[in-house]
Design a protein around this nucleic acid. Structure first.
Lengths: 332, 332
DNA sequence: CCGATCCATCCAAAAAAGGTATCGACCTAT
DNA sequence: ATAGGTCGATACCTTTTTTGGATGGATCGG
């Protein structure tokens, strides 16, 4: 094109002047041609295998050799042999073709949601029961995906969802309207956390007012806002004024305090998975009940193909857990 | 050809039915297109970078996506974004392009003799001095090549040279005429191997007839034919009839025998590299001298590009060693 | 609502790839 | 020795693909 016409047919017998603009590269189809010839060591048979005729095959091999500036095949009139460079390149050619194949397959898998990676944010308390169950289910149904988990409070999750750093948030209400999809995955009752020897631990089901008259370990109003606000509303509706002796954000810290006899607390049922020795959990009798809710949240315009798949898994899991949970509660 | 004529012009105008026979594969040029677009996130700029115009670029990306059956790029009218599958495929595409590049480079290196692999056969005795020197020189000048060394007797080397299992033979004469190239790389004098306390070990230069009157350790006539025949001729020309007390093939076995006082022997000078304790080596005074020769031999039609390069190294080494050797001898 | 931006589409022209026929070298068999 | 067969390269023509300019259509900012 930018070369003079005569350069099109340079006396091909002198490879001396073959400058080869270097931005030229072979194509995978040429590798396929080469592999076929190298395996058959016969242009005719190779052409047959490639569903083409021999002359264009010869030409493709010549082009490949010219681009590489390497003789790959030694053609005597009676036999075709690989040169050492050809032998070396054959291995690489096979490798490249295989990689190309698997790159295509992987792209397809990612697009169909069978493979890929996803970032999930979760609140500290959800880690006690729902998150492990969800991750286990995903690992089972989508063994090839990469799940990256990050613990953060609900408000941070919303920020990261917005910025795209997180694909899925497992967080506490409230959930802002704009551009987010969400559904509830757990709704656990709050249970009383009591020191083993505490009088209330004898009762099957202490009443909320009993707890309110004990030294009470409360949630931190900012880092654990959801539980803080939930308890405030609970006590307020019951017209109770508990005696807050300590504010903490983490459930395991609260249970440690209960263990040490600092006071009693209300924790979500999933805390039972912590199995804190010397601390007993008891369902609480209360007038107005509200479960601790956890939501599965995503950005509506997130196009990660794993999202709908994992959302489906999460929904199924929630349904199962829900039925078990209600069963549990009916037993109590 | 075997298809009906009409099948040649399938209704190409309906992409609706483009079933894509799946044996179609993308090409590296399309990967380059995709990488450019994915990096620029802008078809126009990417086209500029690829030295083409935007429409064909768009088309190539579409073809790539159709072949993969995966949407790689999300084109809103205002911005281009990668889909998750596209992000995944981008990494693979870059990897493939890099591999293709280095495969080409490696093929060129192999063709030019800067890389590659070569099989070298050598006789047991050559391992004491010339082979290590040659291998060291090759490792220094051709750090990227793979040298495979196999010890075998000269006749076996010739067989393997013929079959192509060995590219280079380091062997003893005679060398058959047919289709082989060869040059001499070492010519070492034979020296006397004597027990440390032996009377002849006191002399600076024992005479051949002195050795012939001692119990003499001889080379095995088949496995060490070259040295056997050499010594036979040596003694025959000097009209000596030595007293052969033992026949052995390996030099180190012979020296061990000398060490044990079984007798004396004649060994090539390079045996001094063995440093056998209690055995002294002495130059021998003889009428008619003939050095033990080692040849570098290859098949004339061997097209391994390393062959001429290593042959050059071997020749240089021989020249150097030759001069040092003569120096050594002049000192003695 | 208009102009700018940007990707997709259309179409004619150019390039590339494919196919048929044939060449030329070489090996084999008569 | 020579005729016939084999096999890769070449010549030449046809088909397919790619290219690039022009244009379309959607969207965003002013």
């Amino acid at each position: 094109m930018r070369e003079p016409i005569e350069a099109r047919h340079p006396a091909r017998r002198q490879p001396l002047f073959q400058v080869e603009d270097t931005d030229f590269m072979f194509e995978l189809s040429q590798l396929r041609c080469f592999v076929a010839v190298a395996e058959e060591l016969h242009f005719g048979r190779a052409a047959l295998r490639l569903n083409m005729t021999q002359p264009p095959l010869s030409r493709q091999i010549q082009i490949l050799e010219r681009v590489l500036d390497v003789t790959l095949l030694e053609r005597s009139n009676r036999a075709v042999r690989l040169t050492p460079a050809g032998r070396r390149f054959l291995a690489d050619a096979r490798h490249l073709l295989k990689l190309a194949e698997s790159a295509a397959a992987l792209a397809r898998r990612v697009a169909s949601g069978k493979a890929g990676s996803i970032n999930i944010g979760f609140t500290a308390t959800s880690a006690y029961s729902y998150v492990p169950a969800l991750v286990a289910a995903c690992r089972r149904e989508l063994p090839d995906i990469e799940i990256s988990l990050k613990e953060m409070v609900s408000s941070d999750q919303l920020k990261r969802l917005d910025s795209g750093e997180v694909d899925i948030g497992l967080l506490r209400p409230p959930i802002p309207r704009g551009g987010l999809g969400a559904f509830r995955v757990t709704a656990e009752p709050l249970v009383a956390a009591l020191p083993g020897g505490h009088p209330l631990a004898q009762a099957d089901q202490p009443r909320l007012e009993d707890l309110a008259s004990e030294p009470f370990i409360m949630y931190e109003p900012y880092e654990a806002r959801y539980f803080h606000d939930l308890l405030v509303e609970l006590f307020s509706r019951a017209s109770l004024v508990p005696n807050y002796v300590q504010h903490l954000a983490q459930i395991h810290s609260i249970l440690a305090m209960v263990h040490s006899g600092v006071g009693v607390a209300l924790v979500p049922e999933a805390a039972s998975n912590l199995r804190f020795s010397g601390v007993v959990l008891r369902p609480v009798l209360m007038q107005w009940e509200r479960p601790a809710e956890l939501f599965f949240v995503w950005r509506s315009d997130n196009d990660n193909p794993l999202l709908p798949v994992i959302a489906g898994i999460a929904r199924d899991l929630a349904a199962q857990a829900g039925s078990i949970q209600s069963m549990d509660r009916s037993i109590q």
